[in-house]
Design a binder for these strands. Structure first.
Lengths: 337, 337
DNA sequence: TTGTACGCGTTATCAA
DNA sequence: TTGATAACGCGTACAA
């Protein structure tokens, strides 16, 4: 029933304006080095208005051999760590005339690979990947020379990288606890297959070392599979010399820990200090959480900027950009009693 | 310096396999009704493998007149209300072979309009919009007959709509508080220019009415500009008959309120009950927040499903799908003392 | 079963 | 200053 009126083409515009298709193109793109008489230009623009003509970006992409689109591979857009990154990327992309494609990978390397192939088919101009789980994706990008920016600590891959200084962040958090007088500081974390996990452990150990506090492996709780804060707390508190401060891998984990502690009548920060990481949820808790703030938005912005720079100039040397993290002191930490 | 090796085309494959271009296309697309000899097929596939050929989706889109891409207009991807929607949309899109374009509008109607025009140029197959701020966008979609699904209570527009039952959610929350014995129930909310705000007020009033509790306008705090929970609390508590329960517009607002109350030594839920809305942050607080849970993920899923259905069958009658909200009772509510 | 030729809507290169 | 005309890479009707 619906009238299948097809969208007008530049040909329709040309005919209505009584000029050739190329002239239409010249007018609409203000093609440099080409002069169009005022009268012709007026006629073309009027025809455009009358027909409500919108150039077909697909055809343009085919002709120009670029799509002005970039893709963002995100582990999980519903994880509070990523939305601000996405925002940063989108802001920069939009300002530069690029469209953003969102690819949720769920950290599954197969899906990541599939998406990479899809983006290769779609001929996006470049890809930003949140956390790379599949080295094959990196190789593919290189092989097909698809510009790729990785939001993660640089490893082997020869790609542009933007990352937050996890080691420093972790170091400062623990150093701060030490300055508060704590010497028994626990670190509860997840599977260290991810590099950021290892980095935070590294910062933790280094801060202890610099303060000449011997590392006690009983205070480092690593959950290789399912994280269980309850278990960790139980084990830590059954030590002969339990911790007076806990440094958690993330805000989310810190909050779970806080809940357990409060349920047991342990007061924060009077009885124990808690520090999180990310600063995504830290200002929502009561007491508000001391945490290491990651510059997620800026990371997104920087990643998009680096990518777009590279699109303009493919021969640029590879960049590794480290963004600082910052300790944000709130109410979940206090001097050791 | 970098070798500008261009991506192989179907022509390259055809030449290597010693067949015609159409044969390549037939093999790769398994074109129905066309039989290809095993030998030919093998040769083609081998050539594809050797060249690592990836079909150019842009060219395909141009030829087939569809892009297999949909766009999601989101108010603010960093607002915890939206990521789960985005996930739902992405999941469904991916399963159906569609790619998702993310358009952050910041609720600015101009940007929304610009993005609509851009998506029209890009010839996406359809658009899902989180909350429509610009009626012009709706008109444009209609005019250009671009399928549009709106995630919001149906208003005038003749488009498919998927929305959560805000009135019911609000009603149940207040009803629950009444059942707990509360009669002085405050509602703190934002500018009612948005329809969901008005709906929640409506549900609030209706629950009071059904319980024969007279509506007291002193208990309804509306912030037209900047929300200031502190002011609201001050005013409410200086009433001769202050509230014993507060129903907040959102989880976020509820949390701000909780912080203020706790700071003043008021205990939750012993001294006052608090209810939020959204269920995005409600399980992070201490005590955990009783709230009205919105099915964000399902809304995204449903919206994408409706859109894709319509793409398959444009003549389908318009759908208005209402999804239920659900009261989730946690620890921030208790019987009135 | 395979090949030819045209269409998709632009941009770009030459002539005029 | 403008107009033909050839890419761009693929799908597909039609012919062989």
């Amino acid at each position: 029933m619906t009238k299948k009126k097809k969208a007008p083409t530049s040909w329709d515009v040309a005919r209505l304006a009584g000029v050739s298709r190329s002239t239409v193109s010249f007018v609409l793109n203000n093609t440099p080095g080409i002069k169009i008489s005022e009268e012709t230009r007026r006629r073309v623009l009027e025809a455009v208005k009358i027909l409500d003509y919108k150039p077909n970006a697909i055809a343009r992409s085919l002709a120009k051999q670029k799509t002005e689109a970039i893709a963002f591979f995100v582990l999980d857009i519903a994880n509070p760590v990523f939305p601000n990154m996405a925002r940063g990327i989108e802001d920069v992309a939009r300002h530069n005339g690029y469209t953003l494609l969102l690819c949720n990978t769920d950290g599954k390397s197969l899906r990541e690979l599939r998406y990479m192939n899809l983006m290769l088919e779609r001929r996006v101009d470049g890809v930003i990947v949140g956390a790379l789980s599949n080295e094959e994706v990196s190789r593919l990008a290189r092989k097909k020379n698809m510009p790729l920016v990785i939001l993660e600590h640089p490893r082997l891959h020869e790609h542009d990288v933007v990352y937050a200084d996890n080691i420093q962040g972790s170091y400062e958090a623990v150093k701060y606890l030490i300055e508060l007088g704590h010497t028994r500081i626990a670190h509860i974390t997840i599977n260290p297959e991810s590099i950021i996990v290892r980095e935070r452990i590294e910062g933790y150990k280094k801060a202890l070392e610099d303060a000449k506090i011997p590392f006690d492996e009983n205070l480092l709780k690593i959950f290789y599979d399912q994280v269980n804060e309850e278990t960790a707390i139980n084990e830590l508190f059954s030590l002969p010399n339990p911790p007076t401060a806990i440094f958690a891998f993330s805000d989310f984990m810190a909050i779970q820990i806080m809940k357990i502690l409060i349920k047991r009548g342990i007061r924060i920060p009077q009885d124990i200090s808690i520090v999180g990481f990310d600063d995504t949820l830290a200002n929502l808790t009561i007491p508000e959480l001391t945490t290491v703030s990651q510059p997620f938005y800026e990371m997104g912005v920087k990643a998009a900027e680096v990518l777009i720079e590279r699109l303009k100039n493919p021969d640029l040397p590879i960049q590794h950009i480290k963004l600082p993290t910052k300790l944000v002191i709130r109410d979940s930490t206090a001097p050791r009693k």
